[in-house]
Write a protein that binds this DNA or RNA. Structure first.
Lengths: 187, 187, 187, 187
DNA sequence: TATGAATGAGCCTTCATTCAT
DNA sequence: AATGAATGAAGGCTCATTCAT
């Protein structure tokens, strides 16, 4: 007895997001997603071509909100605070979605398309970081060559992830450390 | 028809190492390893209890040589060069085993034992880094508080992996950057 | 291509029953059951957690009807006929499911749960036999000590199985013999 | 480095006997037998064509000694004691080799040859029982028709096995019960 | 559109048997 | 004759995907 489900796409998203975040791609199966959503397996396939594409869609969506927050900061925060605010927000967001963030540093084992989406996502984040870094650099009146800046951007990014993984109860110190590492490179 | 195969353990190791490095645990199956080794599936099980233990053994072995090299540096290199040499070697080693290095930053999806072995391994590497960092700090006459040092150690580690991933054709610049980031934190 | 199969549980039951009866647990594999049922292997696992549980379910089911028939006799047959009727029915039932009855006299090689289910089943049968034996004893005004009765119950049970195995075309004589052996013990 | 092994056939027999008795055919593998014997798996195949034939040979051998003991009784024991002595010995022997005795009442799941050997064996035992029963009958001056006697012989046999299985700590009572059941049929 | 039973390829693992040494 | 490494068929089970209802 088919039922019409309201806001089904969102429900699927929520269920899948939670599962993928907690367990990782390989340890989630479609039945789990269906169960958690409260729908039948087949219904999943009305909304997503296959498991991979479901995963990808979750991945993309899950970051959109974050991207918006970051943009908000870029638009409205004052120069001197942009970088630290951006790092703080990114830290918090990543903290909340550990499992799914891992994918952003792993490079292998993702086949072509999966890779593409993830890279696109990563780039979006890196672009924001770069922008904020530029502002910060200007604000501090510092000079960095192109090569160094490129690396610095990535460094900030992975630092956020790594500090999250390694010292997860110490947000304050972690962020200070990251800022410190950036600032000292800008002297 | 059974035949005695020469250096089979090494052959298995090589095949498994290459496959696990390239594809990651979940995407390698025992038949692939057997085929690449040029033996029957069953033979694999004469040498390794199961897939997990094969993987673990490959993982451990693959790092033993590296650990030895690092120890060599710690023992014989002069203070001023210890850190940079250690980073260089680690960088080179990780560069050669990309896939399998990933496991060291991913935290989840590894069940108990797997996790244990990986953490043991990671710790061994971190201990060497810490030691080298201590020397370097002494040599530069710098001061760092405990909290910062802890983070700095992890930072060096993930920087090596990340730089490898992101700018793999520019070893020289990458290492300079890493050293730079460390040194500037020690001022 | 999935299709909805009618009465699939019963079909599985029938196929599995026939196979397990004829060949015994170890010599039946899931593919055989699937093939005989006319379904895919995976489908089997939609209805039964694993091979053992399929087997157990078949075992239990196959005896439920018998238990019902026996109870019917206990409830409605007149005292003087209870035992002979019960033995006759049990004989007929066992005759129809030779293979699966064997499990009831084999004791070993069944791991924990399997054992438990089989013993439960066996006990149910033995309880009915005992009851009938009690009636019969009363009816014949005979005396037996506890120890003897215990053994007599088991004896009736295994006699039914053994006579079935050994002289399967002579139901009449077999039952007479069993009754005879019981009666002579009750004099 | 091949070694010449003394009394190897007997060693294999002992190891295999113990294993098969304890665990049953399906749960013993050739490596276990080799290990327990203290030889290589391949060596097993110099003495026995395959697992089945090893099993069969063990089965046959294991009963030869028993058969001899039984014959001794038939030859030397006085008429009045023949049956009870024979039952006692058989009871003791079966008690010591539970696992392997089970095969004698199971009829199915043994493919052709296996079946043949087991039946041959069983017949040898039944013949002795019949002989002893005849003596006993003469001694007690009893009459039984052919059909009954045939069944009585089997009955004695399965009673021994069943009493063993069901009340294994009460040898004395069990044997009394068996004798009792026989005697009461001979009145 | 929603359902979920059905599908079957594919995975890990075992073990009787062979045969180069 | 003894060895035991090598073999590979076979088994139990999972799960992404399909499609009749």
């Amino acid at each position: 007895m088919p039922k019409i489900i309201d806001g089904i796409e969102e429900k699927i998203y929520n269920a899948a997001y939670e599962l993928f975040s907690q367990k990782g791609y390989e340890f989630v199966n479609m039945k789990m997603v269906a169960n958690k959503t409260g729908i039948a397996v087949g219904t999943l396939y009305n909304y997503h071509k296959n498991k991979k594409s479901l995963y990808l869609s979750v991945l993309e969506n899950s970051w959109q909100e974050t991207l918006n927050k970051l943009d908000e900061i870029m638009d409205n925060e004052k120069k001197s605070k942009k970088l630290v605010r951006l790092i703080t927000v990114l830290y918090t967001e990543i903290s909340a979605r550990k499992g799914i963030a891992q994918e952003l540093i792993k490079s292998s084992e993702l086949k072509e398309i999966k890779k593409k989406v993830i890279n696109k996502l990563k780039n979006k984040l890196l672009i924001r970081i770069e922008e904020a870094l530029d502002c910060h650099k200007d604000y501090r009146n510092a000079e960095v060559d192109q090569e160094t800046k490129k690396r610095l951007v990535k460094l900030i990014f992975i630092e956020i992830i790594a500090m999250n993984n390694e010292f997860h109860d110490d947000k304050q110190k972690n962020i200070e450390f990251i800022m410190n590492s950036v600032n000292s490179m800008l002297s």
